[in-house]
């Protein structure tokens, strides 16, 4: 029988757990919470910048995952991406409802996202891609990095980015476009090595 640790199956494990949840296993739900809570809370906190509100958002996000586990579509991406997307959308909504205006990240956020070392649970397969992307992001000019982080993490449209950065709409669009093109190029060239 095979006995080597098989940590390369992170994604399969997430799917297996979510599968158990969809089949009605509440305990799997709790195992899932333990597995994702720090990532979900971390993302919510980054966006809403208020621990109490972030907790509400994280709880609601996990609840939605639990509730809609049967609707998850593996063809559209990893479980972790699905969970984080739900979290982001809820966090953005929560901020909009509470402050009546789009959130505006601190400058330190843009720096921290690339300066941070991978966390202790960032070893396995899926996370190598994260490390690669982090390195690629670090190579972008800061203006492009800000634009693409605003778009991907804060869900800002080009119009919102233009307003927040006080730049013309065309400039905002081209910064995002250039950043995405360069990230794709950098990630692709890393993968070829």
């Amino acid at each position: 029988m095979a006995s080597e640790p098989d940590l390369s199956s992170e994604r399969a494990l997430d799917e297996a757990l979510l599968c158990s949840i969809a089949l009605g296993d509440e305990r799997a739900g709790l195992a899932f919470v333990r597995r994702f809570q720090s990532r979900v809370f971390g993302l919510a906190l980054l966006i809403v910048r208020d621990r109490a509100l972030a907790e509400d958002v994280a709880q609601e996000a996990l609840w939605r995952v639990f509730r809609h586990a049967d609707a998850y579509d593996p063809r559209r991406g990893a479980v972790s991406a699905w969970v984080l997307t739900i979290t982001r959308n809820l966090a953005i909504d929560a901020v909009r409802v509470r402050r009546q205006q789009p959130t505006d990240p601190h400058d330190e956020v843009f720096v921290r996202l690339v300066a941070l070392q991978p966390g202790p649970d960032e070893q396995a397969e899926g996370r190598q891609a994260a490390a690669m992307l982090r390195a690629a992001l670090a190579q972008l000019p800061i203006a492009q990095r800000r634009a693409v982080v605003r778009a991907a993490i804060y869900g800002q449209s080009a119009t919102e980015i233009a307003a927040a950065e006080q730049i013309p709409l065309g400039t905002a669009k081209s910064r995002v476009r250039l950043a995405v093109a360069r990230l794709r190029g950098l990630v692709a060239s890393e993968e070829e090595r």
Partner: peptide
């Protein structure tokens, strides 16, 4: 790419009793 960027958000331990 968008999903990957989202996963870069630093993890943070939720308040005690969250679970």
């Amino acid at each position: 790419i968008a999903d990957g960027l989202l996963s870069l958000a630093p993890a943070a331990e939720p308040p005690v009793g969250f679970e």
